[in-house]
Amino acid sequence: MLAAAPSQGTCLRSRHAGCRTQFVAAPVVRPCLQRLVRRQCVCMSTAAQKVSDLPGSLQKIVGSFQMVPDPMARYKQLLFYAAKLPPMAVEQHQPENKVEGCVSQVWVVPELRDDGKVYWTADSDSQLTKGLAALLVLGLSGCSPAEILSVQPGFIEMLGLKQSLTPSRNNGFLNMFLKMQKLTLGLLSSTNGGS
């Protein structure tokens, strides 16, 4: 049998675009042939969380986007969500509520209510970004902090918006989501006395 050192390759599955994959040579019957077998994908897997693992409201949103096959139609659906976003008070446009790393200006504000659920408000100076914010506000409002923190960023891939958005918009959407999780952690630490 021939032995070969592991080599690096690019993962061919679209949901892992850009990640590095390690290959090893597997034993073969004929020494002149070697079959490469993927051993390990060194990236965060977007398949780790299923749609059914998401909070109910986020499941519905992901489902509605998955039913629309055309990227332009998904883009229009996003603008529809922007129109549904309730207005945010101007006084809430504070630096601590601002999402860093977005092309447009975006603010998100959580409210932990007596029922133990978090409710969100958001605003942006761009209609498209407002649609992305609305999607997160509608999908994560009414969830417990534990539910919000259990959502993995891979759900963004499930929406199928990547083709409709520029890389900077996709990055901004991820930053919005991560800011919401960070603010959720802040709410938990303040209610638990900073522990």
Rank of each mutant, 00 (worst) to 15 (best):
L2Q: 14
A3Y: 14
A3E: 13
A3Q: 15
A4R: 15
A5T: 14
C11D: 05
C11M: 03
L12F: 09
H16L: 07
G18Q: 07
R20A: 11
T21C: 10
V24E: 03
P27Q: 09
V28D: 11
Q34R: 15
R39D: 08
M44R: 12
S45W: 00
A48C: 07
A48Y: 06
P55R: 06
K60H: 10
F65V: 05
M67H: 14
P69Y: 08
A73S: 09
A73F: 03
Y75M: 05
K84P: 00
P86V: 02
M88Q: 13
E96G: 08
W107P: 06
D115E: 01
G116N: 00
G116F: 01
Y119T: 10
D123C: 00
Q127A: 12
L128E: 02
L138H: 14
I148D: 01
L149H: 03
P153D: 11
G154R: 02
F155E: 00
E157F: 11
M158Y: 00
G160W: 04
G160Q: 06
S164K: 10
G172Y: 09
L174E: 11
N175V: 05
N175S: 13
F177C: 03
L178M: 15
L178Y: 12
Q181V: 08
K182S: 11
L185W: 08
G186K: 15
S189K: 15
S190P: 07
G193K: 08
G194E: 05
